[in-house]
Amino acid sequence: MLPEEHHASLPVPIFPRQTLVSLLVFAAGWEALAHLAPLLGIPPFAVPGFITIAKRLVAVTPFDVIVTLARVVGALIVSFVLGVLLAIAMYRSDALEQYLRPMIRILMAVPVVSWILFAVLWFPGVEFRIGFVLVAVCGPVFLIDALDAMRGVPRELRQMMRSFRPTPRQFFLKLMLPAIVPSLFTSWKVNISLAIRVVTIAELVGAVTGIGHQLSVAQELFSVADVFAWTMVLVVLLFLLEALVARVESRMLRWRG
């Protein structure tokens, strides 16, 4: 067996040793800093110890986590459906693509903060504002990725498929959509991370529920422990969503070997 093969055949641990070591070093450094803070002239609330953070973690309200999760998942599903449908329309109509693509590129360049301000100025409902911001940010990613993936379907496969004379609907369902699935999974992974970060900012403005709102409250109370706890919840949420997508991906793309 070649060294590479041997390496490849080893089971990959969930938490590699290096990850654990770096986390432990960080945790030890933080805890030490928390204890040394008064001696260093740092206010104690600025660097809370892990016991304090753990207490705040226990106090995390599941309702806010569920609300944020629902906003993220809901907006991602809407973005995905709209993005893919528009990508199909643009793939089928060169004229539509020529008109829409520059516009979408411009929309993708708009900063998240600007979207939030537009949403606040345009829409009265908090939920709609948050949804609007998330769809405005994530939708174009799905759209452009899906469109590029459709354009990238090999000519040989398209020619083979057309030689069997499918209907346009069959052509899309049997060739184009399955062919772009790997790219769609990549878009999902990119957008989950994007959505988690954007929803937090969007919830900071006007929302009275959700993790972003709780972060805002923590900031008003100067509670670094709460900020730390809610941030940990966000990070775990992101990892869980990514793991879920990775699991579905490995099942659906098992044909890649």
Partner: peptide, 25 residues
């Protein structure tokens, strides 16, 4: 029916599902 230089099988379909493709169409 056509047979091309390269097999042009759909990589996400099993051998059976590839052979079924034109019959589905």
């Amino acid at each position: 029916a056509t047979v091309f230089q390269q097999d042009r099988l759909l990589p996400w379909r099993s051998a059976l599902d590839n052979a079924k493709l034109p019959l589905e169409l």
